[in-house]
């Protein structure tokens, strides 16, 4: 990817600082909203919001700090695929736990 790099400046120092600012603000929001009772809106809303912010932060880190935005399709693919496989693991494990009826191992 040498030539890609010499062609692109990426985002330069101001860009990196902007990403940094987003990450700090994201952390701050995560911290603050954890103390709001969002679970009264619907159960799990607090966790959902926290994860949404974490995902945003991760995306920013990957796109800009890890240069995924300027990388080849394969890098995009491996990033997306690994999360897809995580999703498989989470979803197919939890579908079992969510649908237990009763018995020794229920819930």
């Amino acid at each position: 990817m040498a030539e890609t790099h010499s062609d692109h400046e990426h985002i330069g120092i101001p860009g990196y600082l902007a990403v940094f600012a987003i990450l700090i603000v994201g952390t701050w929001i995560t911290y603050v909203v954890a103390f709001w009772d969002l679970d009264s809106v619907f159960p799990g809303a607090n966790t959902l919001l926290a994860l949404a912010i974490a995902f945003t932060k991760m995306t920013v880190v990957m796109l800009y700090f890890m240069h995924v935005r300027w990388s080849k399709e394969l890098v995009w693919l491996s990033a997306v695929a690994s999360f897809f496989w995580l999703l498989i693991m989470f979803a197919f494990t939890m579908q079992d736990y969510f649908t237990r009826v009763s018995g020794v191992f229920s819930s």
Partner: peptide, 15 residues
């Protein structure tokens, strides 16, 4: 760590 922080440190704070 971005994921560990909210998932470990911030549970049920609103209670």
């Amino acid at each position: 760590w971005i994921f560990l922080f909210p998932l470990l440190y911030l549970l049920g704070r609103h209670f």
